[in-house]
Design a protein around this nucleic acid. Structure first.
Length: 438
RNA sequence: GCCGCAGUAGCUCAGCUGGCUAGAGCGUACGACUGUUAAUCGUAAGGUCAUCGGUUCGAAUCCGCUCUGCGGCGCCA
């Protein structure tokens, strides 16, 4: 009588058709008359319609079940069958409904604004949309681990509290640290550079904090970055690794999340198509030429590409594009100059990967400068105290080697794969300049 | 840092050439209904129109400050 509960997804398996099953879940919708009750329930795997007539359950139980509000938790026992009349094509004829917890009136109803859903994120996370996104997210982070481990990389976990900046001073979160201040990490990079002299090939997926005053649909104050750092490789190899990584992630999403993409109304064929194509790698200087020729934009050499320029450029491509060798001037202190480059000015051994359809930069990376003199000069130029980076400069004093690394913005990648309008939906509890609740 | 948009029932909105005793749909409560597809029908409850101040005989409506949220630029992943 008390059979083991199964998931809603399992109940749709041919082996269970006609059988009595026990399902656990939450009420997603209810409809009915005084003789019939339709109760759609959901669990982590999906939704299924459950139906009963008054005579099936008896007057008392029918009345109790009919009064259960949306999001009440229940155990349903009944016979599952294919039924074309049911949404989703399967239906459970209920023999029993057990109330685990009767819900209060659920605040989220048919009409929802973005703001209201963010205010109620702790409840909205139950929605089919968020459920699907979070499953894709789990696939993405899992795929990152799998990709690097298969290639012989070690997972390396950096500190989150850091005394130094690495990406420009104005974007650090300063926090109390006993009787002084410290910062939340903006990147694992300086520590990763130390670690490669032990592990050679490392990666991580970890939170990153940037206090940029950006109020856009592409920015978060707390986001997850998947980074890699490896000894003995140059920036051009790093570009290829990053592209392989993204391809691998997309492949895994296609293997595991077709149903979720469907809920998100994303056509998987688009992703398949992207996997089939070559992804171009162009230089910054070439990018300016393309912008001039095909978009009529006259961008002054030496400036970083701005959002409009990236958007115009990516209108010309339907796959991710690697852009390499940006002007040294616009780049962070640790990016070395490429000698003998075919460009109007000094360029750095660095790259970005841009996603199509306006999703912008999803990867940024570079080779790392191994020259103490030029590093010290670059730090001074940025107004940093060279002394506080002494430990970092040590890495150049004891057996320095060529090395490169990059960071992939996990939420930006998810937003692109899932075609989300806003990056805030790519993370369960978004943190922005104006929101740290719930 | 700069620019723009918004705040009216639990939710989504209408009302904004000043005349309101502030409406609708959804949700909720009660009732009806034997196959519903975010069912349908009936009845009801539910509001200091974000705050403060100003103009006016009269302000949801016009003006100003503030607060809150959202987006765009810049910067970045």
């Amino acid at each position: 009588m008390d059979e083991e509960p199964i998931s809603i997804q399992e109940a749709k398996d041919p082996g269970y058709q006609g059988a009595e099953v026990r399902l656990r879940g939450w009420i997603y919708r209810t409809r009915g008359s005084n003789k019939m009750l339709f109760m759609v329930i959901r669990d982590s795997t999906g939704i299924i319609q459950c139906v009963a007539s008054r005579s099936d359950l008896g007057d008392d139980l029918f009345t109790v079940a009919k009064d259960l509000p949306v999001e009440s938790s229940v155990i349903v026992i009944g016979n599952v069958n294919k039924d074309d009349r049911a949404p989703g094509g399967y239906e459970v004829h209920m023999n029993d409904v057990r109330t685990i917890s009767k819900a209060d009136r659920f605040p989220i109803t048919k009409d929802q604004s973005e703001e209201f859903l963010r205010e109620n994120r702790h409840l909205w996370i139950r929605s089919r949309k968020m459920n699907a996104i979070l499953k894709v997210r789990s696939t993405v982070t899992g795929a990152i681990h799998e990709f690097f481990r298969k290639k012989g990389y070690h997972e390396f976990t950096p500190p989150i509290f850091t005394p130094n900046q690495a990406e420009g001073g104005s974007t650090l979160f300063e926090v109390k640290y006993y009787d002084r201040s410290i910062y939340l990490t903006q990147t694992w990079q300086l520590y990763a550079e130390a670690a490669i002299f032990s592990l050679e090939k490392i990666y991580d997926v970890s939170p990153t904090f940037r206090a940029e005053r950006s109020k856009t649909s592409r920015h978060l104050s707390e986001f997850w970055m998947a980074e890699m750092e490896a000894a003995w490789i140059g920036y051009r190899e790093a570009v290829q690794i990053a592209m392989d990584e993204i391809r691998f992630i997309i492949k895994k999403v296609l293997e595991n999340n077709i149903g979720d993409l469907e809920i998100l109304e994303v056509d998987p064929d688009g992703l398949v198509h992207i996997l089939e194509k070559e992804w171009p790698v162009i230089t910054y200087t070439e990018a300016l030429g393309i912008l001039n020729d095909k978009a009529g934009m006259d961008v002054q050499w030496g400036k970083d590409l701005r959002t409009v320029e990236e958007e115009e450029l990516m209108k010309l491509f339907d796959t991710p594009v690697g852009v390499v060798e940006y002007p040294k001037e616009a780049m962070a202190f640790y990016k070395p100059v490429l000698e003998g480059a075919d460009a109007p000015g000094p360029v750095a051994k660095c790259f970005d990967i841009l996603a199509p359809e306006g999703y912008g930069e999803i990867v940024g990376g570079s080779e790392r400068d191994t020259d103490i003199e030029s590093l010290s000069m670059a730090l001074e130029k940025e107004g940093e105290s060279v002394e506080s980076y002494d430990w970092y400069l040590d890495l150049r004093r004891y057996g320095s080697v060529q090395h490169s690394g990059y960071g992939l913005g996990v939420e930006r990648l998810i937003a692109w794969i899932c075609k989300l309008e806003n990056i805030k939906d790519a993370i369960p509890f978004p943190r922005t300049m104006t929101r740290a609740y719930p």
